[in-house]
Design a protein around this nucleic acid. Sequence first.
DNA 1: CATGAATGAGTGTTCATTCAT
DNA 2: GATGAATGAACACTCATTCAT
Lengths: 193, 193, 193, 193
Amino acid sequence: MHRIKKQNRIIETAIKIFSTNGFYNTTISQIVSSLNMSVGNFYNYFPSKKSLARKSIVFVSKKLAINLKYINDQDLTSYDKIFLFVENYFDFLQNYPEMIEYFFRVYLSNREIFCENDRCSFSLAEDFVNEIKRLLQDGIKNGEFSQKDFFISFSCIAGTLGGITFLKGEHVLEDDLNIYREGIAQSIYNALK
Amino acid sequence: MHRIKKQNRIIETAIKIFSTNGFYNTTISQIVSSLNMSVGNFYNYFPSKKSLARKSIVFVSKKLAINLKYINDQDLTSYDKIFLFVENYFDFLQNYPEMIEYFFRVYLSNREIFCENDRCSFSLAEDFVNEIKRLLQDGIKNGEFSQKDFFISFSCIAGTLGGITFLKGEHVLEDDLNIYREGIAQSIYNALK
Amino acid sequence: MHRIKKQNRIIETAIKIFSTNGFYNTTISQIVSSLNMSVGNFYNYFPSKKSLARKSIVFVSKKLAINLKYINDQDLTSYDKIFLFVENYFDFLQNYPEMIEYFFRVYLSNREIFCENDRCSFSLAEDFVNEIKRLLQDGIKNGEFSQKDFFISFSCIAGTLGGITFLKGEHVLEDDLNIYREGIAQSIYNALK
Amino acid sequence: MHRIKKQNRIIETAIKIFSTNGFYNTTISQIVSSLNMSVGNFYNYFPSKKSLARKSIVFVSKKLAINLKYINDQDLTSYDKIFLFVENYFDFLQNYPEMIEYFFRVYLSNREIFCENDRCSFSLAEDFVNEIKRLLQDGIKNGEFSQKDFFISFSCIAGTLGGITFLKGEHVLEDDLNIYREGIAQSIYNALK
DNA sequence: CATGAATGAGTGTTCATTCAT
DNA sequence: GATGAATGAACACTCATTCAT
């Protein structure tokens, strides 16, 4: 178990540095220095830098999925679920900005790292994607959302959240992000309706 | 003028390669080989690889803005403008996929390349951003769109389009993108309403 | 301590090559090849080529200072000290010609390498310069040398030795350098008297 | 004749830049920019950068020799000649510092540029060296200088002057160089006596 | 498990020189 | 003579990965 713990410590640190500097501007040296660990020892836990990046996105995807799953499991209107989900997302963004940044800046933009052969990146985030799928299907079933191609709806949700996240990174938003919560949630809900 | 023409040829080639391989996996050698040009000569036109990337995004942003400006200039309902804009975007995506990929995968995800001092990346795409701003302001003025923070609306438009674009890159969409046009346009319109 | 030893091995080799080819015509490849070392490993010991050159001149200056300090510490007339010093210098020139060449051809002639900010090159050779200063002060105190501006006296000593060193490098001198020792020593002594 | 004039203009500019930046840190571009001339045209006047450097040292050597020849031609004691020569040297150093710097920092320290096959650099400065030779021979003939190997005497003269020149370059001397003239002249005279 | 010295292929950039116009 | 675009070899430095200890 100790081994798993250490791997997670490495992943958490890596996510922070990757999300700040990008994958290609982060060196293994930097990561292990932050961890007071030796380069050689790093390779006892991960076979390569790319593999670390892949394990990291699975880690993030799982973490993002947990709250969403919790919301999906509840007996609520889809309207409430969307609002709760956005609420949650903003909390996450404020508490673990590095994970969100990692998701949008590193994972989504560096296909060559996360693809191998044909099985591509998307599957690495499947925990998260599957919960989104469930949210949408429930909404369609109960009549709150109109029948739409999944990918269109997915784009509305993840795209809009991604958009506001990028703007945060550009430092053009107000410091207090909370003022955007309701507007974003309502817009997403309207888009799916 | 010959010089400008050559610079543009270089930019167009660079965008193709950058968008396929990413900034860090593209070498100057690759770019100049594609152009049947020597390395040294490349540096007669651009002082550095980063500078090439920056000039490239301005090029893309201008190109994206042209059609949008044309639409904005017409006397149409905002509903029609949104549909026209999405129409246009999908055309652009099919005709110049490399430019869209460049915008979303290279530009938005590599701050360190496009920022210098404080003046950051966002300004490089201002041609495009300004037209979006105009589209929204007109819609609010004529009552079709609800009053919303600009950044929220911007996230809905650019985010949703970005979302569908990423999914295209993941090869999970149908080959015929046209089936998504209307759904996307309607969703964006609903979000802004 | 192993690290220091290796650094010194690198420095000694570098001095040989730098002094033969000059700083700009010496490549890191050449240096590491001579040492049966890899390029990458070189950079584990020195952060840059310039830094290697700077550390090298400190090394030379220290080595030049040692014998001079030994002479200064003895109870001798300044006449004897000058003769001993010149004697020593010629020995040094014959045993470690590369160090002397490095001092005169690389260090003194490439300010841009050895200056950084305002603290300039001269300070790097301070071990050597300080001993010269002591030699002169003692001679003035005991009345053998006339009171003169330090820089004038320094020019007479270091300049004259530098002169004969350059001529050696031009291959215009007799092979047996010893025939110049006494003449040089006497001339320097006369100049300082 | 126009051609010769242009060559000299190039040489004079080159000396300034070479002496400031060193041979290897000076580009042909820099030189021709200073002259409002094109790179291509430069090569109509000099076959290579090295050749420019060689022609430049001949130019400097000739210029240094002129005054010295004038002094040698007069009917004066060697004492007066030495003082006049040093006087002259200091004037030269103040009026054309770039030529002196070129002589000491570029020419004397970059053998590889000025040597070709066996005929080495020294011959390029022969105008200057020959006048020094004459100065010394006259002094020996008239009994003012002691019989000494030419190279020893040459080292005393050129070395000492070189020494003070280097110190000037290090910015350790007083701004008013004139305070060193007499001391330097007397020291050199004493050394040769 | 842990260390960190060692490897070496790879990259952005420079610049003397050429040559078509 | 004059221009400056074009060439391409060369070089400092980086960094993921290995491996002896």
